[in-house]
Lab assay of single mutants.
Amino acid sequence: GTVHVGDKTYHFPTPDAAKKFAQEIAKKLNLQVTVKNGTWQVH
């Protein structure tokens, strides 16, 4: 899975790992999470 946070991109071996990371970052930074075609965006 891929997660975009601002101008950074993180790659994870599984979709679940990407989802978990995106949700944790969003919670920590009080941001929104959207997913499109398996790519997570934190914004």
Rank of each mutant, 00 (worst) to 15 (best):
K20M: 11
K27C: 06
E24C: 05
H4W: 09
T14S: 10
V33W: 05
F12I: 01
H43E: 11
Q23S: 08
P15E: 13
D7H: 12
K19Q: 14
K36M: 14
G1P: 09
V42C: 02
W40C: 04
H43Y: 13
F12Q: 01
K27Y: 09
Q41N: 12
L31T: 09
P15K: 14
Q32V: 14
H11Q: 08
G38W: 05
L31E: 03
G6N: 08
D16T: 09
T9W: 11
K8L: 11
W40E: 02
K20Q: 13
T34D: 05
Y10M: 04
T2Q: 08
V35K: 07
K36P: 01
K20V: 10
I25Q: 06
K36Q: 14
N30K: 06
Q23V: 13
A17L: 13
G1A: 12
K8A: 09
K8T: 09
G38P: 03
L31K: 05
A17E: 14
Q41R: 10
K28Y: 08
L31N: 03
G38I: 03
A26D: 01
A26G: 09
H4N: 11
A17D: 11
V33E: 02
A26N: 02
V33K: 01
T39W: 06
P13I: 07
K36E: 14
G6R: 06
Q32F: 09
Q41W: 15
E24L: 11
A18Y: 01
H11A: 06
T34G: 04
F21W: 10
K19F: 12
K36Y: 13
T34L: 06
P13F: 07
D16N: 09
Y10K: 01
D7E: 12
P13K: 12
W40S: 03
P15C: 07
T34I: 08
T9N: 05
K28C: 05
K8C: 12
Q41L: 15
L29S: 05
G38Q: 07
G38F: 07
H4S: 09
K28I: 10
D7F: 10
W40T: 03
E24A: 14
K20D: 11
K36R: 09
K20N: 12
H4T: 13
K20C: 04
G38V: 04
I25N: 02
L29R: 04
K20I: 12
K8I: 11
H4F: 12
G38K: 04
N37C: 04
T2V: 12
L31S: 08
K19A: 15
D7N: 14
F21E: 01
T14N: 10
K20H: 13
T2K: 10
N37S: 05
A17W: 05
Q41K: 07
K8Q: 11
T14I: 03
T9L: 10
T39R: 09
T2I: 13
V3W: 00
F12Y: 03
E24Q: 11
V42E: 03
D16P: 03
Q41D: 09
K28F: 08
N37E: 12
A22W: 01
G38T: 07
Y10H: 04
F12H: 01
V3T: 02
A18P: 00
V33M: 07
T9S: 08
Q23M: 15
T9A: 09
P13D: 14
V42K: 01
V35T: 07
K8G: 04
E24N: 09
G38D: 13
V3E: 01
A26R: 02
V42M: 04
V42N: 02
N30F: 05
H4P: 00
G38M: 05
H4A: 08
A17P: 01
P15N: 13
Q32W: 07
K19S: 12
K28W: 06
T2H: 06
